[in-house]
Design a protein around this nucleic acid. Structure first.
Lengths: 340, 340
DNA sequence: TTTTCTATTTTAAACGTTTAAGCATATATT
DNA sequence: AATATATGCTTAAACGTTTAAAATAGAAAA
């Protein structure tokens, strides 16, 4: 790779100092009182030599990299890649670039990624935190590194964050199932201590209670992220055999939904007649299930834009009060829940 | 954000020179003949102060950023986000980090992204090039900047690249449709001059010819990326009304397939009885269409790993001969094509 | 005792920027 | 004529590293 043109080259070309060139390139001629003729010459040579500033050098000097580190569970999950797309666009509008990493819900990988990104001097983080990463996030906060949590959050750690009201969203979904006459409503959740999941479960339980349905332990199934398919298969088997034990199912994420739907598809269970279904998040696949799947939709647009807005605010104003953006979730009803 | 600990701080702490600290931190004690006691002290202080190297400074010195720039059409497309995930993992194994951008198939955005990434001194690019970006890619090549093209490529520009044999893959899919008795086979493609698409179309036509089916212009439909839905809707209307004009459909990408399937879903057409279907690429949604969709699968694993391998090779050996990795594509048959 | 090693440590320059401060020269103000 | 002010440009230091070259000190060899 040929050496790139630097300020030095332009300066040498014209026999002037690097300083002068820097001023002109950065449009500081006025303040620096650069002569108009020489300024014009500098600009001309810069164009001719096709000068491109070295952002690495700029960063070293300024301490700013204009880079945001994005850490999610898995960039190939459509929920996260959708958010990543919005974040990318929004960040670039503000002159930022995004480096990303997938934690696979592992605290260790999460820490690795944070370290790598920190050493690369990212100006801020947008993180969908994995389980047991409270201390990691806390450490960032203590070092005054801008962090915005998305999707999940930690009540114990004061941070900027963007998320929905999980309790209320789950409540609404399950309440709808109950209101349409379902009496035995199961839920498939992740096995995690993350509060957003706990809240979804609590919303589910609260909706049951409100509808005078006595919650049964067997209805609430949890899958471990590290072996989803196995856990989901077992859970479904328990609920579907020897006969269908429930008349409705609420899925806590799109990934869980997809796994479960595959099994339901093979099982001969009729949706919504035998089983009503509502999922969280969106997925292309929901449209193509024979009974298009109803879902609790989070606006990834709002999440992405909110996150970028917050992180840039925080970079600009490190001491300002933390704020949470609560994004609206809305229930999209289709035939899987028994269309009205 | 508090100032980070630098070599200088460690040096000051111990009253030694920065150089010495640098040698120890980089495990160059042997070559630099650093005294063992002082080396130990330096290591200890580094740990105590929690020293983390500033990669920006390192980069400025070395001219290497250990960063790969990834440009795809749209990171939220599952095909690309899947590849991005593989690239991320593979790159990190080799100490690289990935910054990404979506071109939206626009040459202008593509150029913007290249410039931004270049100014940030990425060590190499992995690009799924948009239409009319030959010159851009060529310019990178001429500046000896490592580039690997994925998914698409330009015959006129000598580059490293990873792709499937598009002609053969399309041929195989369409040949299967013909072999199972379909006589009127339509294809939905993108309206683009990109060779990979042209080859898919040619593969389609060749398969028709080979099966003694006379190609009709009306069967080949093209959608513009900028207004897919509109174009697909029009194309489908033309083929489905007033009566179904064809008995099989081949989709050139997963995005096109999803759009078309939505319409087919609403239309009352029975798949595969009235219409057999094969798509390119994969998609969660294919599993849930009432007749699970057959598809020509490209291994995103192979594409991602191949791309990273090639770009790192190229970074290490700038002058070596260009190589193309041809990834295998395999036809996955399910009921949409009329299960055997 | 002077010279020559050898072992350890420091100096200095470099990567490509930014920017405060300084230095001429010319022009304007007393 | 002396002084102040403007104008145009350069010097130098800094950001945090790396690394070749030089310096220092002590021990061994002459």
């Amino acid at each position: 790779m040929e050496k790139k043109v630097s300020l030095k080259d332009i300066a040498a070309h014209l026999g002037v100092s690097i300083t002068l060139v820097s001023y002109v390139i950065n449009n500081k001629e006025k303040e620096a009182r650069v002569g108009p003729e020489i300024a014009e010459k500098i600009r001309k040579t810069a164009r001719e030599l096709n000068y491109q500033p070295n952002l690495i050098a700029k960063s070293l000097k300024s301490g700013k990299t204009n880079t945001i580190g994005l850490i999610v569970a898995d960039i190939s999950n459509p929920f996260f890649s959708g958010i990543a797309r919005i974040i990318e666009d929004e960040a670039r509008k503000h002159g930022y670039v995004v480096i990303f990493g997938s934690s696979d819900e592992s605290a260790e990988k999460s820490q690795d990624l944070m370290n790598v990104f920190l050493n690369r001097q990212v100006d801020g983080f947008i993180i969908a935190p994995a389980e047991h990463t409270e201390q990691q996030v806390n450490a960032l906060q203590n070092s005054n590194i801008p962090v915005v949590l998305i999707d999940r959050y930690f009540p114990s750690v004061k941070t900027d964050c963007v998320h929905i009201n999980n309790f209320q969203a789950a409540y609404q979904a399950v309440d709808h199932l109950a209101a349409s006459g379902r009496k035995k409503i199961a839920m498939m959740a992740y096995e995690t201590t993350l509060p957003h999941m706990r809240e979804r479960v609590e919303g589910y339980k609260a909706a049951l209670k409100e509808n005078d349905i006595r919650f049964k332990n067997a209805w609430l199934r949890k899958a471990n992220y590290q072996h989803i398919t196995k856990d989901v298969t077992a859970a479904m088997a328990a609920l579907l055999e020897p006969v269908l034990q429930v008349d409705a199912f609420f899925f806590a994420t799109n990934t869980l939904a997809v796994e479960c739907l595959k099994i339901i598809n093979r099982s001969g269970i009729r949706v919504p007649d035998d089983l009503a279904i509502i999922s969280f998040d969106e997925n292309d696949a929901f449209d193509f299930f024979y009974a298009p799947v109803s879902y609790m939709s989070q606006s990834i647009e709002d999440i992405g834009k909110g996150a970028v807005q917050l992180v840039i605010d925080r970079i600009k104003h490190p001491r300002k009060k933390h704020s949470s953006v609560v994004v609206e979730a809305k229930l999209v009803l289709r035939s899987s829940s028994g269309k009205k």
